[in-house]
């Protein structure tokens, strides 16, 4: 059996080589739904990071007690607990954001990134590796959301984080803020990433 990746490898992998959105194509529901402005996207990334970190740590701590046929139940239970904490916390301290994100915070429960990390890493490796994995994957997810939300907010409203960056004459591309804009942006960025990667692989083969 191949050696399990080390903590550092897990951390690095999450950011680009195994980016949850661009490489694993996981967690696409929030990626499409809450990326029409940076603030919402970053709140979502923070919420996912908290849940992912918490779930990975707890699962890793109890990994020796898990039974194969009951593991998914325990993953879901753990994830749901952390999601509920985030949901309540946002409603208490970031009320308007909580209203803007609406059902997408509770929907983190079914975000495949988290359950995939519990399955792939946390249920097999030590707490430190699981923590590093969670941080790496969260950064990867955050960067992916930021790339899409950045494009959509700038083109759709001429603003970035609510501040104007485009000249006032910029005609807002409303479609970028609407759902189709999410699909266009994700598709184009995904294509760009794949193109860069295939070019790099070709160069490597030549060399």
């Amino acid at each position: 059996m191949a050696q399990d990746p080390t903590s550092f490898e897990r951390f690095i992998q999450g950011i680009i080589p195994e980016n949850p959105v661009y490489r694993q194509l996981l967690g696409l529901c929030p990626t499409l739904a809450v990326t029409n402005n940076m603030k919402a996207a970053m709140t979502m990334a923070g919420a996912v990071a908290f849940v992912l970190f918490g779930a990975n740590i707890v699962i890793s701590l109890i990994r020796n007690l898990l039974k194969p046929h009951l593991r998914i139940v325990i993953f879901t239970l753990t994830i749901a607990t952390f999601v509920t904490i985030v949901d309540r916390f946002l409603a208490a301290y970031m009320y308007s954001m909580s209203k803007a994100l609406g059902p997408y915070i509770p929907l983190i429960i079914v975000n495949c990134i988290i359950i995939a990390r519990c399955e792939v890493c946390a249920s097999k490796q030590s707490v430190i590796t699981a923590g590093a994995d969670a941080i790496g994957q969260s950064i990867g997810f955050g960067l992916a959301l930021a790339s899409i939300a950045g494009v959509r907010e700038i083109l759709g409203t001429g603003m970035f984080f609510g501040l104007r960056v485009m000249p006032l004459t910029w005609p807002d591309w409303v479609i970028m803020v609407l759902p189709p804009g999410a699909f266009f942006t994700l598709g184009l960025l995904l294509g760009t990433f794949n193109l860069i990667e295939s070019k790099m692989a070709k160069n490597k083969n030549k060399g």
Partner: peptide
């Protein structure tokens, strides 16, 4: 383990709710 975790998580969530619900 499922039963035990449910009890732990349940009480933790009850605590969170108790603290945050007046604010919400």
């Amino acid at each position: 383990l499922v039963v035990f975790l449910s009890l732990c998580f349940g009480s933790a969530l009850a605590g969170v709710q108790l603290v945050l619900s007046p604010k919400i």
